[in-house]
C-alpha cells in the first residue's frame, strides 16, 4: 500500500460473538476525500474507533504512510497526525470555544509540567502563537465572535463546526469525520462541506462517515459501502450508487 496515507488491511473485530468488522481492507490515498457509507450498525464508527486506537483489532494491520500503527494508544495516533470527530459530538462544554480549539493543538510545551516552571517563557510564547492561530481559524469559519463563550452555548450546528475547527487546529494529515453534517441546518451543512472540500488543497486526506448521500456525492472522490462489518462496494460515488449490491442492501 505504498503511496497511500492510511492503509487498513484485513481488519477484524468481534463483540460478544458478533462480527463488527469482518476482514476489512481499504486505503486512503493522499489528498483524497473518502466517503464511508452503509446502514446503521454496519461497523463504520467501530472502524474509526479501531483506526484511532480506542478499540484493539483482533486481526489485521493499520499503517500510516507505510509505518505500522496497529495497537498504538489513541493519544499517540493523534500525535502522529490523525484527528477525528465523534458521532455523538464530543466537546469540552465547561471550556470556552477558544479553549476547545487551544486544547486541540499538538505538542504544546505548556502542557508539560516541567516547562511550566522552568521554561515558562517558552510556554507562554507558544501559547500566544497558538492563540493567534486559533482565533484566525475561528474567524475564518465564522465562529470568531463566539470565541469567549462556553462551548455549551453554541447551537448544535455550531458545535459540529467547532469540532471540525479542532481537527484543523491539530494540523493533522488524516481527518476522520464521523457524521459531520448530520442533524444540522442546510446553511451549516454547506459551510462544513465547503471546509471539507478544501482540505485536500491543504495537504490533508479525509475519511467521512455520512448518511446524507447528497453530501457524500458532492464532496467525496471515492466511496466505500460497508455492511455487517464488510466492504460491499468501492468506487466513485456514481459507481457505488449504481452498484446493484448497494441497492439491494438498502432495500433490505
Amino acid at each position: 500500500m505504498t503511496g497511500s496515507t492510511l492503509g487498513v488491511n484485513g481488519l477484524s473485530k468481534s463483540f460478544d460473538g458478533v462480527r463488527a468488522i469482518a476482514d476489512f481492507s481499504c486505503e486512503l490515498r493522499d489528498g483524497e476525500i473518502l466517503g464511508l457509507i452503509g446502514p446503521n450498525g454496519a461497523g463504520k464508527t467501530t472502524l474509526f474507533n479501531v483506526v484511532t486506537g480506542f478499540i484493539a483489532p483482533e486481526h489485521g494491520q493499520i499503517s500510516l504512510k507505510d509505518n505500522e500503527i496497529t495497537g498504538l494508544a489513541p493519544y499517540r495516533l493523534a500525535n502522529l497526525g490523525i484527528a477525528r470527530t465523534f458521532q455523538d459530538l464530543r466537546l469540552i462544554r465547561q471550556l470556552s470555544v477558544l479553549e476547545n480549539v487551544l486544547l486541540s493543538f499538538r505538542s504544546q510545551p505548556g502542557e508539560r509540567l516541567g516547562n511550566l516552571f522552568f521554561r515558562s517563557e517558552r510556554s507562554r510564547q507558544h501559547e500566544a502563537l497558538n492563540r493567534q492561530t486559533a482565533i484566525e481559524l475561528l474567524e475564518d469559519t465564522g465562529l470568531g465572535d463566539k470565541a469567549g463563550e462556553s462551548a455549551d452555548d453554541l447551537s448544535y450546528g455550531q458545535q459540529k463546526l467547532l469540532s471540525l475547527v479542532c481537527c484543523l487546529a491539530a494540523e493533522a494529515q488524516v481527518l476522520l469525520l464521523d457524521e459531520p453534517v448530520a442533524g444540522i441546518a442546510p446553511e451549516m451543512i454547506d459551510k462544513i462541506l465547503g471546509i471539507i472540500r478544501d482540505l485536500p488543497v491543504k495537504g490533508k486526506s479525509v475519511i467521512l462517515i455520512e448518511h446524507n448521500l447528497d453530501a457524500v456525492m458532492q464532496v467525496c472522490d471515492r466511496v466505500i459501502f460497508m455492511d455487517a462489518g464488510a466492504k460491499v462496494s468501492e468506487g466513485t460515488p456514481e459507481e457505488v450508487r449504481n452498484d446493484p449490491k448497494v441497492i439491494e442492501a438498502y432495500i433490505d
Binding site: 480506542f54 493519544y75 465523534f86 465547561q94 471550556l95 479553549e99 487551544l102 505548556g110
Partner: peptide, 29 residues
C-alpha cells in the same frame, strides 16, 4: 495557580469532562 491557568490545567479540565476527547486530542491522559 500556575498549573490551573496553564495549558496543562486546561488538559486537566478536559480530562475531568471527557477523557475520550482528551485522548483524541493527543493528550496522554
Amino acid at each position: 495557580r500556575r498549573i490551573v491557568r496553564s495549558p496543562f490545567g486546561r488538559v486537566l479540565k478536559a480530562i475531568r469532562e471527557d477523557e475520550v476527547f482528551a485522548q483524541a486530542a493527543g493528550k496522554n491522559v
